[in-house]
Deep mutational scan, measured.
Amino acid sequence: NQESVVAAQLIPINTALTLVMMTTRVVSPTGIPAEDIPRLISMQVNQVVPMGTTLMPDMVKGYA
């Protein structure tokens, strides 16, 4: 089963992602794949992401 990127903390809107903000977990439905974490660093979220929420492609500016 593929791991997806999950918020390790509350991420406010327009925050640039850092490694410490993200963790990985096997979730359903699947979100952004864990191997894309290096690509996500410094990208901004376009909404508030509560802790434990799976990051979906449409939540990250410039990802999709």
Rank of each mutant, 00 (worst) to 15 (best):
Val49Asn: 00
Tyr63Asn: 11
Leu55Arg: 01
Ile32Phe: 07
Thr18Gly: 05
Met51Phe: 08
Leu17Arg: 00
Val60Met: 05
Pro38Trp: 05
Ala16Pro: 13
Val5His: 01
Thr54Glu: 02
Thr15Ile: 05
Thr53Pro: 02
Gln44Val: 10
Thr53Gly: 13
Ala8Ser: 12
Thr23Trp: 14
Val27Ile: 06
Val5Tyr: 02
Ala34Tyr: 09
Val49Asp: 00
Gly62Ala: 14
Leu55His: 01
Gln9Ala: 06
Asp36Leu: 14
Met43Asn: 09
Ser28Phe: 12
Gln2Leu: 15
Ala7Val: 03
Asp58Asn: 15
Asp58Ile: 10
Thr18Phe: 03
Ala8Arg: 15
Ala64Ile: 15
Pro50Gln: 14
Met43His: 10
Thr23Asp: 14
Arg25Asn: 11
Thr18Val: 05
Gly62Arg: 07
Asn46Asp: 09
Thr24Val: 12
Ser4Thr: 07
Glu35Gln: 11
Leu55Glu: 00
Gln47Gly: 07
Asp36Glu: 08
Leu40Phe: 02
Ala64Asp: 08
Ala7Ser: 11
Val27Glu: 04
Met22Lys: 00
Pro38Leu: 04
Leu10Trp: 14
Thr23Tyr: 10
Asp36His: 13
Met43Leu: 13
Arg25Ala: 15
Glu35His: 12
Leu17Ile: 07
Thr15Trp: 03
Pro50Ser: 11
Leu40Glu: 00
Thr18Asp: 08
Tyr63Trp: 15
Arg25Pro: 02
Thr24Cys: 05
Pro50Gly: 11
Ser4Cys: 09
Ser4Asn: 02
Thr18Ala: 07
Met51Leu: 10
Met43Ile: 14
Val5Ser: 02
Lys61Arg: 07
Leu17Trp: 01
Ser28Met: 06
Ile37Pro: 00
Arg39Trp: 05
Pro33Gly: 13
Met43Glu: 05
Gly31Tyr: 02
Ile41Cys: 03
Pro33Glu: 12
Gly52Asp: 14
Thr18Gln: 05
Thr53Ser: 14
Asn1Tyr: 12
Asp36Cys: 14
Pro57Ala: 15
Met43Tyr: 12
Pro12Val: 03
Asn46Glu: 08
Val26Glu: 15
Met51Ala: 07
Gln2Ser: 10
Gln9Tyr: 04
Ile41Gln: 08
Pro33Trp: 09
Arg25Ile: 05
Pro33Cys: 14
Leu55Trp: 01
Thr18Tyr: 03
Ala64His: 14
Met59Leu: 04
Val49Arg: 02
Ile13Ser: 04
Tyr63Ser: 09
Arg39Thr: 09
Asp36Lys: 12
Val6Ser: 05
Pro57Tyr: 05
Gly62Asn: 15
Leu40Cys: 06
Pro29Phe: 06
Val45Ser: 10
Thr24Arg: 09
Asn1Asp: 15
Val60Arg: 01
Ile37Lys: 14
Ala8Cys: 06
Pro33Val: 11
Thr53Ile: 14
Leu55Asp: 00
Leu40Trp: 01
Ser4Phe: 04
Met22Thr: 03
Thr54Phe: 02
Leu40Ala: 01
Ile11Leu: 12
Asn46Lys: 14
Gly52Lys: 05
Asp58Arg: 10
Leu10Thr: 11
Asn46Ala: 09
Gln44Lys: 07
Gln2Arg: 02
Thr30Ile: 11
Val26Tyr: 07
Val6Lys: 03
Gly62Leu: 11
Thr53Gln: 08
Val27Thr: 13
Arg39Val: 07
Ile41Phe: 06
Ser28Cys: 15
Ile11His: 00
Glu35Ala: 14
Met56Lys: 14
Leu55Ala: 01
Ile37Thr: 06
Thr30Trp: 10
Tyr63Leu: 10
Ile13Phe: 10
Val60Cys: 04
Met22Phe: 05
Val48Ser: 15
Thr15Gln: 07
Gln9Asp: 10
Ala16Trp: 05
Ala64Arg: 11
Leu10His: 15
Ser42Val: 02
Tyr63Asp: 06
Val60Gly: 02
Leu17Lys: 00
Thr53Lys: 12
Gln44Leu: 14
Met59Asn: 04
Thr18Glu: 10
Ala16Phe: 07
Val27Cys: 04
Ser42Ile: 02
Met21Val: 06
Asp36Met: 11
Met43Asp: 05
Val27Gly: 04
Ala64Leu: 15
Val45Lys: 00
Asp36Gly: 08
Thr18Arg: 04
Pro12Gln: 08
Gln2Lys: 04
Glu3Trp: 04
Pro12Phe: 03
Ser28Tyr: 09
Glu35Cys: 15
Val48His: 12
Gln44Ile: 08
Ser42Glu: 10
Pro38His: 07
Pro50His: 08
Thr15Val: 04
Leu10Ile: 08
Leu40Asp: 00
Met22Arg: 00
Leu40Gln: 00
Glu3Ala: 06
Lys61Cys: 15
Leu40Pro: 00
Pro33Ala: 11
Gly31Ala: 09
Glu35Asp: 14
Ala7Tyr: 01
Asn1Ala: 15
Val45Arg: 00
Val60Ile: 11
Leu17Ala: 00
Val20Leu: 06
Met51Trp: 04
Gln2Asn: 15
Pro38Lys: 06
Ala16His: 05
Val20Trp: 05
Val49Ser: 01
Val60Lys: 01
Val20Phe: 07
Val60Glu: 01
Ile37Ala: 08
Gln9Trp: 05
Ala8Tyr: 05
Met43Arg: 11
Met22Tyr: 01
Asp58Glu: 14
Val60Asn: 02
Ala64Trp: 03
Thr54Asn: 02
Val49Phe: 02
Ser42Phe: 05
Thr23Leu: 09
Ala34Gly: 12
Val27His: 03
Pro12Gly: 15
Met21Leu: 12
Pro57Ser: 12
Val20His: 09
Gly31Trp: 05
Lys61Ala: 07
Asn1Trp: 05
Thr18His: 04
Met21Asn: 06
Val45Pro: 03
Val5Phe: 01
Ala34Gln: 10
Ala34Thr: 08
Leu17Asn: 00
Ala34Glu: 14
Ala7Ile: 02
Asn1His: 08
Lys61Pro: 04
Pro29Lys: 04
Val27Arg: 06
Leu55Lys: 00
Gln9His: 11
Ile13Cys: 14
Gly31Thr: 02
Gln47Arg: 12
Met43Cys: 04
Val6Pro: 01
Thr53Val: 09
Asp58Lys: 11
Ser4Leu: 02
Val5Lys: 00
Gly31Lys: 02
Arg25Gln: 14
Ser28Pro: 02
Val6Gln: 09
Asp58Leu: 12
Arg39Gln: 09
Ala34Arg: 08
Ala34Val: 09
Met22Ala: 01
Leu19Thr: 10
Ala7Glu: 00
Thr24Ile: 10
Met21Trp: 04
Asp58Gln: 14
Ser28Gly: 08
Thr30Cys: 15
Pro38Ala: 03
Ile37Gln: 07
Pro12Trp: 12
Leu19His: 12
Lys61Asn: 10
Asn14Ala: 04
Ala64Phe: 03
Ser42Met: 05
Gly52Arg: 05
Leu19Cys: 14
Ile11Val: 10
Met56Leu: 10
Thr24Gln: 12
Thr54Lys: 03
Pro57Leu: 03
Glu3Leu: 04
Val20Ile: 13
Ser42Lys: 08
Ala34Ser: 14
Val5Gln: 00
Thr15Phe: 05
Ile41Ala: 08
Met21Gln: 04
